[in-house]
């Protein structure tokens, strides 16, 4: 383990070893006040190296959070006085923005679908009814009055077809443009993701250093495991193939249920 220590902690380890030799020498020669002084020095060195390390990590954590800025999409006013907590809030605000944006895009898309469906139904109904009479025309099965009627209806239909094609075209275009949310939310999520990776990396390092200092200072921590409440759910499964406990699709769910007698 000692060879993985950072230089300053390695130095501390040497200090402890040398100090122990000195301490023993002082005790053996009966110089107890000298021995106590060495113990005090060691204790101070321990504190100093620990706090130095924590200080370094705190600074890099601070830097990582400060670096997290998306200027073009700034949602929180940054006057340069905000502290770390509010920058984390900024990340959370950005994710809220993603939820809002995807929500709005989904709703606009559904609005367009809602307004297109009746147009398509009406086109279909009119075409169907015209086609029937058109068939009778081909069969020369229409009375002159019916023919005049059909003549007018075809004119009305063509106008309606023209208008509805324009409506549908514009609705489809709106749907297309709404998909732009993917780009914008993708950018925001990538930034938040980078921050999380950065913070995690530094936290792992902090935990590792804290662990080494713990082992030097002899502190032990009890591991506490929290159990997941199944009723709360897990959310959508990611990397399903990696987990045999997660079913991949509706067919697998159906198979499981039918094996249970469904």
């Amino acid at each position: 383990m000692s060879n993985t220590l950072r230089p300053d902690l390695g130095e501390f380890e040497h200090l402890v070893k040398d100090g122990a030799v000195d301490l023993l020498a002082h005790i053996e020669s009966g110089d107890f006040s000298g021995a106590i002084k060495i113990i005090q020095e060691l204790s101070e060195a321990r504190h100093t190296s620990f706090y130095n390390e924590v200080g370094t990590l705190t600074r890099s954590l601070h830097d990582a959070i400060r670096d997290f800025q998306v200027d073009s999409l700034n949602l929180v006013e940054d006057d340069g006085t905000s502290d770390d907590a509010s920058r984390m809030t900024d990340a959370s605000d950005r994710l809220t923005y993603v939820i809002e944006m995807t929500n709005s895009a989904a709703n606009k898309t559904m609005d367009m679908v809602d307004s297109s469906v009746p147009v398509a139904s009406e086109l279909k109904a009119q075409a169907k009814s015209l086609r029937k009479d058109w068939g009778r025309l081909i069969q020369r099965d229409l009375t002159p009055q019916e023919f005049r009627n059909l003549y007018k209806r075809i004119d009305t239909f063509l106008e309606y077809a023209d208008d509805s094609a324009t409506t549908l075209h514009s609705n489809l275009n709106t749907i297309l443009l709404e998909q732009g949310y993917q780009d914008l939310t993708g950018q925001v999520i990538t930034r938040v993701n980078d921050l999380i990776r950065d913070v995690e990396e530094k936290l792992v390092h902090l935990v590792a250093v804290a662990g080494r200092v713990d082992s030097i200072s002899g502190i032990e921590h009890k591991e506490s495991e929290s159990e997941h409440d199944d009723t709360r759910g897990y959310g959508p499964a990611i990397n399903k193939q990696d987990s045999p406990e997660v079913l991949n699709n509706q067919d697998e769910v159906d198979d499981l249920l039918s094996s249970l007698g469904f």
């Binding site: 759910g233 959310g235 406990e245």
Partner: peptide, 8 residues
């Protein structure tokens, strides 16, 4: 979206 065997 919950698709764990135990949940089903």
């Amino acid at each position: 979206a919950e698709a764990k065997r135990d949940q089903i």
